[in-house]
Write a protein that binds this DNA or RNA. Structure first.
Lengths: 209, 209
DNA sequence: TACTTTGGACTGACCGGTCAGTCCAAAGAG
DNA sequence: CTCTTTGGACTGACCGGTCAGTCCAAAGTA
């Protein structure tokens, strides 16, 4: 049964398989050294199918980016929202977002890799897509910072934009290092280390319990 | 004199021109979408000259990486050493390293871009070079953290490796964002924002004023 | 002085291979 | 019948690497 009245159930499945295949391949080798045939092969479909589902290699990649960042921002927003709903502080919300970020990277390391690798390139065909998508992700962090400042919980001296970027960078690089160089450690472990940094117990005024 | 028989002075100059040309092109477009001919053209030499000076495109890139990271680690070490010599704390040394990092990125944005983009790729020809070079850079930060813990200035709870990675990431991403999205701001400005984070006055025990 | 030789630096046309994208006849599937 | 996929042949552009040959300043020679 499962009467699929939807015009393209199987089509969506094929696209997913292609995303899946492309993301790991491109993370490993980069966009331009990954061939369309490789992607098709790993996805278990014919090359022609790739072009039936996407108009070009570039378009496949752009949709991949959009898709991935949507997942991420949804996760982050959820994490922040849950804390806010539970009556936590803004710092708690940031902390929750760090955990959510780590969880995401844990789940989709290849996507993260690929995102970082492409983010600061200029002159690429998909630059516009990338800018939009970046703004989306960073904005979630900025919103929480802004709310914290507005409520007097965070110092007014902080620079929202730069601090958000720095926090994202902190999580990104630490997580990528975790995955690449000490993958045996637990997420909680990594989260603890970053939490310490966020809460200023590394360089902060000394006394830490 | 000026050595007539030696490998020559002009050769070194040509190599420099090629480095210069390659670093910006690869930062913009990535390694594999940058052609050897483009590099040669921008350097103002013929394609053959590239192969006279380097055995392959890959080797040119690897030497570029080594060269750049050497400059960076030297800067970082200097910064930390100066503070230590001047009787500053370890946190001061970290702060000085942040400034040195920013100065480096300010000076060589293209190299930084390219480094970040390649760092977490696997399966690349130059992976070994990259690993060595990364360890070199992060080790400088780790050393300062370790010293701080040993002297009781920093909490024993901190995870040296992860914290170092996080700090590097913080500076890297914040700086890249600075250059890409708000290049008009001053280095001092950016440094101030990161300093605040390092010293825990963002998420720290709240009341910091 | 006038010549020849040497050899390092550089050149650019060329070759062989690779790859994105096209096309199409035929086969499942709903 | 329509939508989707297959699989493979084909094209045209592009690109890494090669190589025979040019250029020239310094050294050698007489």
């Amino acid at each position: 049964m499962t009467s699929a009245r939807t015009p393209s159930r199987s089509r969506g499945a094929t696209r997913d398989k292609l995303f899946q295949a492309a993301v790991t391949l491109i993370a490993e080798q980069g966009f331009s050294s990954t061939t369309v045939e490789e992607i098709a092969e790993r996805a278990g479909v014919a090359k022609g199918t790739v072009y039936y589902n996407f108009t070009s290699k570039t378009e496949l990649f752009e949709e991949l980016l959009r898709h991935g960042v949507e997942l991420l921002t949804a996760d982050l927003r959820d994490a922040a929202g849950q804390v806010a709903g539970g009556g936590g502080t803004r710092v708690d919300a940031l902390d929750a977002m760090i955990r959510a970020g780590l969880r995401f990277i844990d789940h989709y390391p290849a996507f993260t890799q690929l995102y970082v690798a492409e983010l600061w390139r200029t002159n690429r065909a998909w630059n516009d897509t990338l800018m939009v998508v970046r703004k989306q992700a960073v904005a979630v962090v900025e919103d929480v910072l802004r709310a914290g400042v507005a409520e007097g919980e965070l110092s007014e001296d902080i620079d929202i934009q730069l601090t958000a970027a720095a926090l994202v960078g902190m999580v990104l690089v630490a997580a990528l290092d975790w995955k690449a160089f000490q993958p045996e450690r637990s997420l909680e472990d990594v989260h603890g280390a970053l939490s310490l940094l966020l809460q200023g117990r590394v360089g902060g005024r000394g006394r830490s319990r």
